[in-house]
Design a protein around this nucleic acid. Structure first.
Lengths: 337, 337
DNA sequence: TTGAAAGCGCTAACAG
DNA sequence: CTGTTAGCGCTTTCAA
């Protein structure tokens, strides 16, 4: 059996309270007894039970992370960073992969709460607002990651999707593209990216054409499919902006299947700047987001809520950067040949 | 505040014991009181505290997963599958990404145990055998995943790495290759794959050349680096077997940098059959492993240990399959040109 | 069929 | 500086 605080107390000839005090570095105890207790704890490999102390209202030092798909490299990367940073701070991570299924989202929140997580970081779009609202009402520690809820009063750290979409489009326009296709995803963030895209078109006096916009689930296969439709459509784009790298990689593949030369006949640019960008050929231009910094911010923010050191809510928005690689080029001029 | 079992009891005009019994479906209670209690629990959104019941010696329904790198698509995929299956069975997943750092491994095991996980699934190679041995001695529920410890009496589910390595090499030999390079990783599984490779060479009467073997960390960048050395070496291989897809993709890239045509001038084959195989060009041949089935088996095995329904230890070994895509071809014959 | 009492391992008053 | 006491939310005898 694992030793309990009483075993230590008995061994040291003191009370459990005293042991508790040295564990938590609280109250005042003589250096001598303290040293003795510490030694005994070590000898017996004593580890306090997080459960028992949590039952007394203390933290479990466990947080729940809810993400849509950890197979998407952005999320696996993010998860990895969060886990590492969390561990540094003494927190363990309970994960849930939702596939954006609202039922799972709700189910997991209650499951995690039964396990008394100290807080949540949520990256999966909650279709089910009720759950979110309940959490907010209870003032339960919670931060949204790369996900916004404009209508909800809630902490979040996101990237400036509008700016990202804008920059991409502006860059493509500067290369002479006028028919710029868009592969989007059913997510708030993509909506913003599309808004940035539209604004850039507007500012450049280029007409917006709805038919150049295709939505797809974020899997390679579906992206290939949808991008195929876009490429086969009448309004042939000379450039395509994928609202995330998965979508962009799918686009790349669809183009290759059709013998379309990249970047000469078609420019493609993604979003997220995942490792996929470097392994496809040609290497994918993309938009980089400071994932590490974002994860850190999200954690710090969450912990400040858990510790109640910070009561005010905030939206932190990080700015994205263009990373130009090999899939973007000046528009292909038929007349030139 | 969240309602407790006492709140329910009071509301229903019964004792906490009775409520506990309906929660756990134990003992005998009249349908009538049962119905009343159930209704009240629903009305109050009552969720029993896992912590409190765990304190009475019950399960936490939480298991710890320890993996080396969730950015490696094999692991993220596996993690995703495990999480889904675990949830189906009512278990939540605590994760830890170790980067194969023995300190983190040990640290996490104690951390997870403080949180009273019901068991572990470990995919990260434990350099620190002591921790593993301790767990085994205590008979703590534990299964190794895609990882073996031949010297330890421990449950595990792995793939037959030897067979995988053998098949790859056999296939490459059948294409006429004789100079077959190897990109390996510091892991038990890779050792087995190498053993398969050697055996295949032996069986085919092809001499084994140590200089064709390069070890690398499993990251794209390091793989590119190491593969570069292999490609630049005197013993120029006509084919390279990457002990995992990351290594193989790195090899592919290194070859491209050097203008080596694939598969005409160099065949490359990976291991794991991750989604990367399909997005690189040409598409990577690889070895598929039944990850889903393996995850399921690992979970089932672990749970049988937790429930103590199964005392006997076992090693489950799944068989891998070759998936031939576009990076493998008959050896390039200089004379033919 | 139901309930009273004890206790899991810990911590927080409060006394001494 | 240290210890006594009570109790977190639940389950488990055992008795009624």
């Amino acid at each position: 059996m694992k030793p309990t605080i009483y075993d230590i107390a008995r061994e040291a000839g003191v009370s459990a309270t005293t042991v508790s005090k040295v564990i938590n570095n609280k109250g005042r105890i003589s250096e001598k007894t303290k040293a003795k207790i510490v030694k005994i704890m070590e000898d017996l490999h004593y580890q306090p039970s997080v459960l028992a102390s949590a039952m007394k209202g203390k933290n479990t030092f466990t947080i729940g992370i809810i993400i849509p798909d950890m197979n998407n490299p952005v999320y696996s990367e993010y998860l990895k960073l969060i886990e590492a940073y969390g561990r540094e701070l003494g927190f363990s991570i309970l994960i849930c992969n939702t596939n954006n299924d609202p039922e799972k989202e709700e189910e997991q929140v209650t499951l995690f709460r039964q396990r008394q997580v100290d807080g949540f970081i949520i990256a999966s779009k909650f279709k089910n607002d009720e759950v979110l609202k309940e959490l907010i009402n209870e003032n339960f520690p919670l931060v949204l990651f790369a996900l916004e809820r404009p209508e909800l009063s809630i902490d979040c750290v996101t990237i400036d999707d509008f700016l990202g979409g804008y920059k991409v489009t502006e860059y493509l326009l500067s290369l002479g593209h006028r028919q710029i296709g868009l592969m989007t995803e059913d997510a708030e963030s993509s909506l913003e990216r599309v808004r940035g895209y539209k604004r850039a078109l507007l500012n450049a006096d280029v007409e917006y054409n709805e038919k150049l916009i295709y939505q797809s689930e974020t899997t390679i296969d579906r992206a290939v499919e949808q991008a195929g439709k876009l490429l086969d459509s009448k309004d042939k784009p000379t450039a395509i902006f994928g609202c995330n790298d998965v979508l962009a990689v799918g686009t790349l593949m669809a183009a290759k299947h059709r013998g379309i030369k990249i970047p000469n006949e078609l420019s493609v640019i993604g979003f997220d700047n995942t490792f996929m960008c470097k392994i496809v050929e040609p290497q994918l231009s993309s938009v980089s987001v400071p994932l590490g910094e974002m994860g850190r911010q999200a954690m710090d923010l969450l912990i400040s809520k858990i510790d109640k050191t910070n009561k005010s809510k905030q939206r932190i928005k990080m700015l994205p950067d263009l990373v130009i690689r090999e899939t973007t080029a000046r528009v292909y001029e038929k007349d030139a040949n």
